[in-house]
Measured scan of single mutants.
Amino acid sequence: MVQKSRNGGVYPGPSGEKKLKVGFVGLDPGAPDSTRDGALLIAGSEAPKRGSILSKPRAGGAGAGKPPKRNAFYRKLQNFLYNVLERPRGWAFIYHAYVFLLVFSCLVLSVFSTIKEYEKSSEGALYILEIVTIVVFGVEYFVRIWAAGCCCRYRGWRGRLKFARKPFCVIDIMVLIASIAVLAAGSQGNVFATSALRSLRFLQILRMIRMDRRGGTWKLLGSVVYAHSKELVTAWYIGFLCLILASFLVYLAEKGENDHFDTYADALWWGLITLTTIGYGDKYPQTWNGRLLAATFTLIGVSFFALPAGILGSGFALKVQEQHRQKHFEKRRNPAAGLIQSAWRFYATNLSRTDLHSTWQYYERTVTVPMYSSQTQTYGASRLIPPLNQLELLRNLKSKSGLAFRKDPPPEPSPSKGSPCRGPLCGCCPGRSSQKVSLKDRVFSSPRGVAAKGKGSPQAQTVRRSPSADQSLEDSPSKVPKSWSFGDRSRARQAFRIKGAASRQNSEEASL
Rank of each mutant, 00 (worst) to 15 (best):
S247P: 07
T114A: 00
G159V: 05
V225I: 01
V175L: 00
A265T: 11
K319R: 14
K162R: 01
E254D: 12
H260P: 10
G215E: 13
Y280C: 11
A62V: 06
Y284D: 12
P335S: 14
F329S: 10
A294G: 06
L107F: 04
K230M: 07
G313E: 01
M208V: 00
T349I: 08
G301S: 10
H328N: 15
R333Q: 00
R210C: 08
I205V: 08
A306T: 04
D355V: 08
T359A: 08
G290S: 14
T263A: 10
G315R: 07
D172G: 06
R333W: 07
G8S: 03
N258Y: 11
M1V: 01
A147P: 08
R144Q: 01
R214Q: 04
R213Q: 07
L293P: 10
R213W: 07
D266G: 10
G281E: 14
L388F: 03
S358F: 04
L351V: 07
T194I: 06
A265V: 10
V250A: 11
L356R: 06
E231G: 13
G281R: 15
C169F: 00
T217P: 05
Y362C: 05
F304C: 13
W344R: 06
S113F: 07
A267T: 12
Y284C: 06
S199R: 08
H228Q: 05
L351F: 04
S314P: 04
F261C: 00
Q188K: 02
A253S: 03
S247W: 13
V320I: 01
A306P: 01
L307P: 04
D266E: 11
V250L: 08
I238L: 00
V225D: 14
R214P: 09
K283E: 04
G159R: 05
P430S: 06
M211R: 10
F305L: 15
A185G: 05
L197P: 04
R325G: 10
P420L: 01
E322G: 10
R210H: 06
L206P: 12
T274M: 12
R291S: 11
Q204H: 03
H96P: 02
P335L: 15
S55C: 03
D355E: 03
L268P: 11
A185T: 03
N350I: 05
I278T: 12
G290D: 14
A343S: 02
I340T: 12
R207W: 09
S247L: 12
L101H: 09
S223P: 15
G222D: 12
G256R: 14
G281W: 12
D259N: 04
D212V: 13
V225F: 05
W360C: 11
Y237C: 11
L81P: 08
G271R: 15
D212A: 14
H260Y: 03
